[in-house]
Design a protein around this nucleic acid. Structure first.
Lengths: 140, 140
DNA sequence: ATGGTAATGAGAACCGTTATCGTTCTCGGT
DNA sequence: ACCGAGAACGATAACGGTTCTCATTACCAT
């Protein structure tokens, strides 16, 4: 888990995003969250930490980071986007329908299945998303 | 493809939804669309056909139909929901990133993989969604 | 230091969706 | 056929999340 401010700063630069104080605050808060958060949640938590970051900046930063592939966007709450700092590699998500915990599934292993399913309908797959919803160990 | 008004009416009743003229109009328009549509698109197309259906009714009907499992909701356009009349059985979607065509993948065959991936993290899977994005035969 | 560009904050604007409310329709019982 | 209760409907206001605007501030190369 990258947590030091230095690590996060390097992560930004490496992704082609200038590491400004505000962006570091946002990323730091994302690193602190184990699950996904909405832009508004993130903003109010920053406020609680005496950050003067504006809501617009939070939205701008989240849009920028997701565009650069630094964070993931989940839209499982119809109408509201959730953001999460994940590993770099291709992965999928496991969601607990009760406590809303989010866990990454690292080993995809679905490429062949995806390619075959796409091919069957004349498609060439460029990406795929899988979301498994269920109950986590604590909730069942 | 169920297209006659009679078929659609029976589909509604079978799903526990009273078949009113407005609902039939909405469902009929959905049956006419090969791809997914937003509520607003659906509404304006109904208007073009001299339907006096209100926007609220379109939203109400779409919410009701998706709740009853008659139609699918896709939220791949972040912030805007798309609706589609699909087959009854469990299936996934193949999306063309260029022309936005949507094709159903009937044979899932992923249950074992899903169960295993969930189990590996202590989860019990209750449902899963797969979306493959790529280029269709016409667009590549 | 200085000028140009990028980033930021506050608040307005936007847009998709939902709620409100008065009217209309549907349907079973008569 | 008629009637009454409850469901459905249409118009429009309200809502909430997101994006835009614009004036101000921070950053960087010169």
């Amino acid at each position: 888990m990258t947590t030091t401010r230095q690590d996060l700063s390097e992560l930004l630069e490496r992704s082609g995003v200038r590491a400004t104080p505000r962006r570091l605050e946002v990323l730091e808060e994302l690193a602190r969250e184990s699950d996904d958060v909405t832009a508004q949640q993130l903003w109010s938590r920053l406020r609680e930490r005496d950050s003067r970051a504006g809501l617009a900046t939070v939205y701008r930063t989240l849009a920028l980071l997701s565009e650069k592939g630094v964070i993931d966007v989940l839209s499982h709450h119809g109408g509201e986007q959730c953001y999460r700092l994940c590993g770099d590699a291709h992965h999928h998500h496991l969601l607990c329908e009760k406590c809303h915990r989010v866990v990454e599934i690292q080993e995809c292993g679905l490429d062949d299945w995806v390619a075959a399913a796409a091919n069957e309908h004349g498609f060439v797959a460029t990406e795929h998303r899988v979301e498994i919803v269920g109950l986590c160990a604590d909730c069942r």
